[in-house]
């Protein structure tokens, strides 16, 4: 079980689970989005740590350097970050609209309100 080489994955798993916990256990929609962001960042970290090469340097070619870290994960994550913020903004926009329509962003309150409306429709 004592494998120092796997330490980085465990950090990632911890961060990921913390993010997941926030998403699952909290009812507030904005907090859920922050949790999603934490989760997302942990995935970024996973990719970047996988691309790291012992003794390597940043993948910008220079003379006298032979070992570079893997540039491919960097590319993927670079675009993923910017896409991530765009999608987060989309989520926030939805939250704002929900707040305007329901007057709340707590999950239980939303459910309550939905049920009340349904009952009203039925009766």
């Amino acid at each position: 079980m004592i494998e120092p080489g796997l330490y980085n994955y465990w950090i990632v798993v911890f961060l990921m689970m913390a993010g997941l916990y926030v998403v699952v256990a909290r009812g507030n929609l904005i907090k859920k989005l922050v949790g999603l962001n934490v989760f997302q960042a942990s995935v970024f970290l996973l990719y970047i740590t996988m691309g790291k090469v012992e003794g390597g340097t940043a993948p910008i070619l220079a003379e006298g350097v032979t070992v570079y870290s893997n540039p491919l994960p960097h590319v993927l994550i670079l675009t993923a970050i910017v896409v991530g913020v765009a999608t987060t903004a989309l989520g926030l926009a939805l939250v704002v609209r929900i707040q305007e329509a329901y007057g709340s962003i707590e999950e239980d309150e939303l459910e309550e309100k939905d049920e009340r409306d349904e009952r009203k429709l039925r009766s």
Partner: peptide
Amino acid sequence: LDAVDVAFTEAAV
């Protein structure tokens, strides 16, 4: 972790 481009983006975004 040698990912300067990524760090740049993450800091700005």
